[in-house]
């Protein structure tokens, strides 16, 4: 074991650069997935004809597949039908496809948890169905979705490491490269990477618990 060699300034910088890519991929994917999920979840909740059924089939298919397979497919199989993506785009698209399916279920669950009485009250006070959804149901539901959504975001952040199979230069990939240089670097590098992942995810989960307590 060689802690000093493994965590030399150059290597630290290299690992942190990878971590930056990890965060970048995660943030972009979270933002896009969130928007898609709210749309898909709401359409399914409102039981919009045709579209609702179509989304249901898509969500059920995607969330029952391993993300590793989706990442692999996006990067290696799509070029065969003429769609070439760079690693970064492929990773983001795969994550967005998978996480949107997962998060839209959280959105739908949150909407379904809003008491029917509130909706009736909204409608009887003269609001349209759309207005009731926007001003009453969504705000309540979104607040209730915070804890499961944050834990899904944590999953997403961890899942970025799967993109190591397409050699996306994120943290896990950089860990592998340093491990390749010198076998004595392996343990310290693993520990450092674990610490980085742990720190950010633990902070996220604490923030989520704080939010939860505030609302309940």
């Amino acid at each position: 074991m060689d802690f000093i060699g493994a965590l030399s300034p150059v290597n630290m910088q290299f690992l942190l650069n990878g971590f930056l890519i990890t965060i970048e991929v995660a943030l972009i994917s979270i933002a896009i997935s969130f928007i898609i999920s709210v749309l898909v979840g709401t359409v399914r909740y409102a039981k919009v004809p045709v579209l609702g059924k179509l989304f249901a089939i898509m969500v059920e298919t995607i969330r029952n597949l391993p993300l590793l397979l989706i990442i692999f497919f996006t990067y290696f199989a799509l070029p065969e039908i003429g769609i070439k993506l760079d690693k970064f785009t492929a990773a983001v698209i795969a994550l967005v496809i998978f996480e949107s399916a997962m998060i839209s279920e959280i959105v739908r669950g949150g909407l379904n948890s809003v008491e029917k009485g509130l909706i009736e009250a909204g409608r009887s006070s003269g609001l349209t169905a759309m207005q009731t959804l926007r001003h009453i149901v969504l705000p309540i539901a979104l607040r209730r979705m915070v804890p499961p959504m944050v834990s899904q975001f944590i999953s997403l952040l961890k899942d970025t490491s799967l993109a190591v199979v397409i050699a996306l230069p994120e943290l896990m990939n950089h860990v592998q490269i340093i491990n390749g240089h010198n076998i004595n670097y392996v343990i310290p590098t693993f520990l450092f990477a674990a610490l980085l992942y742990f720190a950010i995810n633990y902070l996220l989960s604490i923030a989520s618990r704080k939010l939860e307590n505030k609302h309940s």
Binding site: T61, L78, I93, I97
Partner: peptide
Amino acid sequence: KRWSKVIGISLAVALFVSALSG
């Protein structure tokens, strides 16, 4: 049935992405 779903999804993604590519 499931089969055509998978193809459908792949095609939807394909169309979306090919619109983006240069």
